[in-house]
């Protein structure tokens, strides 16, 4: 079985066991200890962009040294003492949200989060450019996880943005809109009509459900998904409602079947 080392650490004065390689945030999430995050997603590589998840750490061997670290990245250590909320941490998170509110004054997500830290109006100079993007980079990471790698960050510093290569419709975009779905602030927009999906300057032709005609996904995505998963493209041509209806129809027509054993191979005609 598992040969990984078990590590014990202290969070807010309570002792916990963790596997080696887990981060502080992993343990806190498992134990239901709240730590706010904006750029974290369990399925994606952590990057530490938003700095909201900062916690204070110290260790009996560190001669009193303590400091803030991003819990989404800091690996657990034997004997580590973690504080997930105190005045310094609160103030850091408050300042970060204040800064983000200056960047995105119109984002309801940031407004709500900032209000939790007592910031309703930013104390800093508001951004001249209207944006809801906080540059958490989740969109770029999810696009990479999908395997498309269509978008990226471009530029530096305050002018950095999530961008398309050379500001043209990205050739690698498959139109899956995962970027838009994962964006915590709703900064990425797309438009669906029965015929096309418009995103990142593309106009993707939609595949329609073979039974009901409802749009399912862009053609380009279908090709991409079929190739990537090795499944027959037919898998992606029926919407889930129609798939279920087909199952029902199949069962109805073969109603004299005895029982359906779950967990065992089941022969059901598509």
């Amino acid at each position: 079985m598992t040969t990984e080392k078990t590590i014990s650490l202290e969070i807010n004065g309570r002792f916990f066991q963790a596997r080696e390689g887990m981060t502080i945030l992993d343990v806190a999430k498992r134990e239901g200890i709240p730590i706010p995050t904006l750029c974290y997603h369990e399925a994606l590589e952590s990057v530490g962009n938003c700095r909201l998840c900062m916690v204070e750490i110290t260790h009996p061997d560190w001669k009193g040294w303590k400091g803030l670290v991003t819990s989404c990245l800091y690996p657990v250590e034997e004997g580590l003492q973690v504080t997930t909320d105190n005045k310094t941490i609160w103030n850091t998170r408050r300042t970060i949200l204040d800064l983000l509110l200056a960047r995105c004054p119109d984002s309801d997500v940031i407004q709500k989060l900032a209000a939790e830290y007592g910031v309703t109006v930013t104390s800093y100079r508001k951004n001249d450019v209207e944006t809801k993007c906080i540059l958490c980079g989740l969109c770029v990471r999810v696009c990479a996880a999908k395997g498309a790698n269509a978008i990226s960050s471009a530029g530096r510093g305050i002018e950095k943005m999530i961008a398309r290569p050379f500001d043209q419709p990205p050739p690698d975009c498959i139109g899956c809109a995962s970027c838009a779905h994962i964006c915590p602030t709703g900064a990425i927009e797309y438009e669906d009509t029965p015929e096309v999906r418009k995103i990142w300057g593309h106009s993707f032709k939609m595949v329609k459900c073979e039974s009901c005609g409802r749009p399912i996904m862009p053609e380009k995505q279908l090709e991409f998904e079929a190739e990537k998963s090795g499944l027959d493209p037919a898998y992606f041509k029926t919407c889930s409602v129609c798939s279920q209806r087909k199952s029902i129809d199949t069962i109805r027509s073969a109603f004299d079947m005895k029982a359906v054993g779950l967990g065992e191979p089941v022969e059901v005609a598509r």
């Binding site: 938003c50 300042t95 800064l99 800093y124 100079r125 540059l135 980079g137 530029g155 530096r156 510093g157």
Partner: peptide, 21 residues
């Protein structure tokens, strides 16, 4: 430093910009 900040993390990107402002 505002020009050269990579823009990855909030305190440096937004904070140094605000300091400069």
């Amino acid at each position: 430093l505002v020009d050269e900040s990579c823009g990855k993390c909030v305190p440096c990107r937004e904070g140094v910009h605000q300091l400069h402002q």
